[in-house]
Design a protein around this nucleic acid. Structure first.
Length: 480
RNA sequence: GUCGGGGUAGCUCAAUGGUAGAGCGCUCCUCUCAUAAGGGAGAGAAGUGGGUUCAAUUCCCACCCUCGACACCA
């Protein structure tokens, strides 16, 4: 059996998950389920990035220990599994021992490209971050309006510059395929501008002692991005389970948001080259969700809690919205009105109503002799056509188009019913046989729709199969 | 500021050097198996200014608007 390894980004746990996190996990879940249906040995990894300094600050704010904070919030991210019906195989936390062992090993693997250098910069104690002179406003930190201190620190640096040519070639030739194309171009433009070595550690003092220690140097903490990126290795046993690691690496797809493209498309491949490990095959970069046209932000108070949405509308309705309404490559907008519109038109009146119509008709006929069979050739052509579109769309990550194909079928089903009018046929003894064939064909048709929905709306798909079997009509998406 | 994408119907998006398509919304008609669901018909569109061409929404230029990228801070 061929393997298929996919990952999502691991999330910062300094706050609870919002709708944007849900989008990425659901997209990844569709791919995972699709590949499983194609009989691949799928490993789907997600998790949390817990070694960031932000967590230290967030914990201080809440007056709890860092450990307490990350445990609490990581739990919340894990719970997306149930809320959104995610099928990930493992959930890695960067505070876990298995990760720390592997991350240290990864550090050693790239050590030949790491050297020590004194670094000087303007450091704002409030932000706990360095600023370039251009970023300052009147010489003051734009956030805290304080004068930053000139801090000098000896840190480790990675010879990124050494890999410029190689990286350019890898991206250009699509040895790592970046989807969509426009992100590839951005990454290439970035590389072509020239790559400088990057700082890959910070002092333990500046890290407040939080994070993974540099092997052999008690005073330095590994840069969080090396730490975080290595989760893709440690999650499948790098440093702890060699056999499993050999089985699944390299990743077939990394699924990430546009904000972290550079880390995945430039730094990550460079580290892997340095460590002499194979490169991931594809990187899919999705857009962000806006709420009523605005960025998701705490200060705007527009954070949408995915758990609340699921509670109110159901898992599959939320999945459906994210996959159908949100463009996979661009930013997409969420409003409750849009979600409700999709629910009413597409789910209740579209899919739900068609299923109900057909199952109710089937119920009228003696169940034993009723088959699920394509008796009428009129449906065959459209099934073939839409199935082909569906497959192509999924493989191109165009989830919205794949669903569009399924809804083309649903709409065709409604038109077909109108044309054949099986409820009329059933009334006349002479035409009964034809009516039965129409319904048998429609059962087949619905079963096909159910199959095409499997990766997207697994629960709904299962309900469709059950109703086809039981001929017991039930509302899939009740009126709200 | 530099680089790149985009500006098409009320909304979201598509295709195309020669009659501009879809979905949703809107108007009208209609079936009754169905969650007052379904089906049919119709109205409705190319940022601005120039150029190339027999012909431009499509190619080129300028301008305006919009979105994204521009390094160690996710």
């Amino acid at each position: 059996m061929r393997k298929f390894y996919l990952t999502t980004a691991i999330d910062y746990v300094n706050a609870f998950p919002h709708l944007g996190h849900a989008l990425e996990k659901v997209q990844a879940d569709v791919i995972a389920r699709y590949q499983r249906l194609r009989k691949k040995d799928v490993f789907f990894l997600t998790g949390t990035d817990e070694n960031s300094l932000k967590n230290v600050q967030a914990a201080e704010k809440e007056g709890i220990s860092v450990k307490e904070l990350v445990d609490k919030n990581a739990q919340k991210f894990y719970q997306l599994k149930e809320a959104l019906n995610l099928s990930f195989d493992d959930f890695i936390r960067t505070t876990q021992e298995r990760h720390q062992i592997g991350a240290k090993r990864f550090w050693l693997a790239i050590k030949k490209d790491v050297y020590k250098k004194k670094y000087r910069g303007l450091y704002c104690l409030g932000c706990e971050a360095f600023y370039t002179p251009e970023e300052l406003k009147d010489g003051l930190c734009p956030e805290h309006k304080k004068k930053p201190e000139l801090v000098e620190e000896e840190n480790y640096f990675f010879r990124l510059s050494k890999y410029q040519k190689k990286l350019e070639k890898i991206i250009e030739s699509e040895k790592i395929k970046i989807v969509p194309e426009k992100r590839k171009n951005e990454v290439l433009a970035f590389i072509k501008k020239g790559l400088e070595d990057i700082c890959v550690s910070r002092s333990k003092q500046r890290a407040h002692g939080w994070g993974i220690e540099v092997p052999g140097d008690k005073d330095q903490i590994i840069w969080v991005w090396i730490d975080a990126l290595s989760n893709y290795l440690t999650g499948i046993g790098y440093g702890t389970d060699e056999q499993k690691f050999q089985r699944y690496w390299p990743a077939d797809i990394h699924i990430i948001g546009k904000g972290i493209a550079r880390f995945h498309c430039v730094f990550w491949p460079a580290f892997l080259l340095s460590a002499n490990l194979p490169l991931p095959k594809k990187i899919f970069i999705h857009g962000y969700i806006t709420i009523g046209g605005q960025k998701i932000s705490k200060s705007l108070g527009n954070v949408i809690d995915p758990f609340d949405l699921v509670k109110k509308y159901g898992t599959d309705a939320v999945r459906y919205f994210l996959l159908r309404e949100i463009s996979p490559f661009e930013d997409g907008d969420f409003t409750l009105e849009k979600l409700e519109k999709r629910y009413d038109s597409d789910l209740a009146k579209g899919l739900g109503n068609l299923l109900l119509r057909v199952i109710s008709l089937a119920k009228r006929i003696d169940g034993k002799s009723l088959r699920i069979k394509l008796q009428r050739p009129a449906l065959r052509a459209i099934i073939k056509k839409e199935e082909r579109n569906w497959k192509k769309a999924i493989e191109d990550f165009k989830f919205n188009e794949a669903l569009n194909s399924v809804w083309n079928l649903i709409s065709f089903g409604d038109r077909y019913l109108e044309k054949e009018k099986p409820w009329v046929l059933l009334k006349e003894e002479k035409l009964k046989r034809k009516g039965k064939e129409v319904i048998e064909s429609l059962l087949f048709f619905l079963e096909k729709i159910g199959k095409l929905l499997q990766p997207f709306l697994p629960e709904t798909s299962e309900k469709i199969f059950q109703q086809i079997k039981s001929k017991n009509p039930q509302l899939l998406f009740p009126k709200r």
